[in-house]
Each structure stands twice: as C-alpha cells, then as structure tokens.
C-alpha cells in the first residue's frame, strides 16, 4: 500500500478518461437491465481549483462525486488521483486515500450521532493511527480555526445546521487533505448560513490551496467557484472557467 504523494504541479490532481458508470438493475421479467448513469466523461482538475458541478437531479453528478471520492468504482474508463490509477488500488489503499487525501462534506452533514463535535472531528485521526489524546488535541485546534471552540463538547443534535456543517468541514480538514468534495453542502441551510459556509470554502481554497469540488443546483452558490461544469443526462455539456 503506497501512500499517495502530493501531486507535483505538472500532473493534475484528478484526471478522468472515458469514464462510464452503469448500474445493473435486477428485473424479474426482463432479466438484468443496465441503467447507465455516466457516459464517457473526461475531466481534469488541477491542484487549487474550485469547481462547481451543476445539473438536475439524476444527471449523474452525485455518482461522479462518489467515484471521485473513491467511495464507488467506475464501470469503465480510468481515474487517476494524484497520478495514481485508482482501479489498481486495494480497498485498504482506497480507505487510506479517503482518510488522508480527501475530505467529504455532505448535504445531510453525516456526523456520527451520540458523539461530541470534538470526537467527530478526531475520528479520522484515530483511523490514521493517532492516539486518542493527541487526536483530540488536534481536533480542538481545528475546531478553534472554524470558530467552534465553545461547541466542542456538544453532540450533533444540540447544534444548529450551520454549526453541524462547520463540524463536518472541520472533520474533512483534520487530515489536511488536498481535495474537499462537497455534495450540496448548503442544501439544508438558510441563505445567511449558506453564505458563511461558502465563504469558508473560498477561504480554504485561497489560503491553503485546497482543491474543492462542489455539487450544487443553485447558481449563486456555484458563483463562488472558479470553474463551472454542467451535467445533463450523464454527460458533460458545459465546462468553463469563470472569474
């Protein structure tokens, strides 16, 4: 299991070629049917980019996010993460990439229930092999950076939506990843909080050069990004840099 090295400037962080994804649908009457979700996707994303992926629901953008996050595997085509062919990696190596190189932010926050904010943020460090005490220390520092020091011992259900999403972002950042994948991160938040969260992403992108890939269907959210990719029916129909 080779640890993934930070990419050099010459190679893109994410490189996808001819990527397809289809699901086998079990259907008693017609035998097995394949439902194709992604068709021949070719995307390159460089270190430090802030990309918004837009599209209607069912356009395949979430499926792409799962593949980018090494949570799912493509049916055909190739995906290089930091120059490494993901298809060649074992389950444990993928887990390690998710742990060290990628941070996830979800629409529904996906925090672990009945655990304090502090423990939620510290958990990725435990999976990285750190001791409980030092992981908590690091987590507390991370919570301070995202302005949540006072809430470190609260459980998710005692926090507001915006606070929960900040805890989730802290958790995503704890292992200093190169990539943050945010799947409709503001979908459950009011517009005021959405702006705060997006500002936080923008700050991370600008100050720490973290690559951010964001899925949204709101134009004003997508406006925070520097590049916009539009999806329709499993195909890229639009890809441009915006300033």
């Amino acid at each position: 299991m080779l640890p993934v090295r930070p990419s050099t400037s010459s190679q893109p962080l994410i490189k996808i070629e001819h990527l397809c994804k289809s699901y086998a649908l079990d259907n008693q009457a017609n035998g097995s049917l394949n439902s194709q979700v992604l068709f021949d996707i070719n995307i390159e994303i460089g270190q430090g980019e802030f990309v918004a992926i837009m599209g209607h629901s069912g356009s395949g953008k979430s499926t792409l996010m799962n593949i980018l996050g090494c949570l799912d595997t493509p049916s055909s085509g190739r995906y290089w993460f930091s120059g490494q062919d993901v298809a060649a990696l074992s389950g444990d190596a993928l887990a390690q990439i998710r742990n060290r190189n990628i941070g996830f932010v979800f629409q529904g926050f996906n925090l672990l229930k009945r655990m304090t904010a502090l423990d939620n943020v510290a958990t990725p460090l435990l999976y990285a092999g750190m001791s409980r005490a030092s992981s908590r220390k690091r987590a507390l520092e991370q919570l301070r950076l995202t302005g949540l020091t006072d809430f470190s011992l609260y459980q998710p259900n005692q926090l507001s939506g915006g606070q929960q999403q900040r805890v989730a972002i802290s958790r995503a950042l704890i292992n200093q990843p190169q990539l943050i994948l945010a799947d409709e991160p503001t979908g459950n938040l009011d517009s005021q909080t959405s702006c705060e969260i997006m500002a936080l992403f923008q700050q991370l992108n600008r100050e720490q050069n973290i690559t951010i890939v964001l899925v949204t269907h709101e134009d004003d959210i997508a406006a925070y990004a520097n590049r916009l990719i539009r999806f329709k029916d499993g195909r890229v129909i639009h890809d441009e840099s915006v300033t």
């Binding site: 949570l71 444990d92 887990a95 996906n110 672990l112 958990t123 999976y127 990285a128």
Partner: peptide, 16 residues
C-alpha cells in the same frame, strides 16, 4: 449501516 458508511468515508478500512 449509515454510520458504517460515514466511517468508511472518513477513512475506516475493512479491518477497522
């Protein structure tokens, strides 16, 4: 199941 999914997303491998 969902908790397991979250844990896998933040880096838990099968053995963990």
């Amino acid at each position: 199941t969902r908790e397991i999914g979250i844990r896998m997303a933040i880096g838990a491998n099968r053995r963990a």
